[in-house]
């Protein structure tokens, strides 16, 4: 009897180590009409379906936390050796200031030339994407320069997430954490 129980328990052991992570959210039914850093139209996530997507959320007037998120995306891409089946995406939640050309300059400042998609677009579409991805943002403090220019800053979620080839969100991480690249690489290598 004891042996039978043990034999029955072994499959449970293997099931618990399966390679299919739980689906956190399904973005497959959504479609957001956005622009990339070259002003080319991007239907997200439709245009990226069939690839894994590692995606972070940023705004370019945030040189601290958002630069950590961007650096983590770059590190993941490097550590995976620039994989063809994984797309790397950084979406802004500040579409008014983060135009395609601003995002292009931002990418250049990080030495990013290709293999990365930065997303912006019409505010309605951008914030619909943010709602869908459960990324929160809220204008916090404003500053005025001596010549009268208004600057504002944004409190925001700190997130990198991974979508599978069916555009389902399967992993979420604290985007700026230094340990995140190694965890993402490990997770992706486990499921790919």
């Amino acid at each position: 009897m004891k042996k039978i129980i043990l034999i029955l328990l072994i499959p449970v052991l293997f099931l618990s180590c399966g390679n299919d992570p739980d689906v956190i959210d399904d973005m497959g039914d959504a479609s957001f009409k956005l622009l990339d850093q070259d002003s080319a139209a991007v239907n997200f996530p439709d245009d990226l379906e069939g690839k894994y997507v590692v995606m972070g959320f940023i705004y370019t007037n945030c040189p601290d936390i958002c630069s950590l998120i961007t650096q983590n995306l770059i590190k993941i891409q490097e550590d995976l050796n620039y994989p063809q089946d994984v797309e790397f995406v950084a979406a802004t939640f500040d579409p008014v200031r983060d135009t395609p050309s601003t995002l292009k300059n931002y990418a250049r400042s990080f030495g990013i030339e290709e293999g990365f998609t930065f997303l912006t677009g019409d505010s309605t579409q951008v914030f619909a994407l943010m709602d869908s991805a459960r990324v929160r943002s809220q204008v916090s403090m404003s500053q005025t320069t001596e010549d009268g220019r208004e600057l504002y800053f944004i409190n925001h979620s700190d997130k990198i997430m991974v979508l599978n080839k069916e555009s389902e969100v399967i992993f979420e991480y604290g985007g700026s954490q230094r340990v995140v690249p190694s965890i993402v690489v490990e997770d992706l290598n486990r499921i790919r």
Binding site: I5, L6, L9, I10, L13, I24, Y173
Partner: peptide, 27 residues
């Protein structure tokens, strides 16, 4: 054998249940 089985399963859940969300780690 029963205890070994339970221990084995416990270890497997610890090893494999990192989950889909990471907790913040203090730098």
């Amino acid at each position: 054998e029963l205890i070994s089985g339970i221990l084995l399963i416990s270890i497997s859940f610890i090893a494999c249940s990192s989950g889909n969300k990471t907790e913040p780690v203090l730098e």
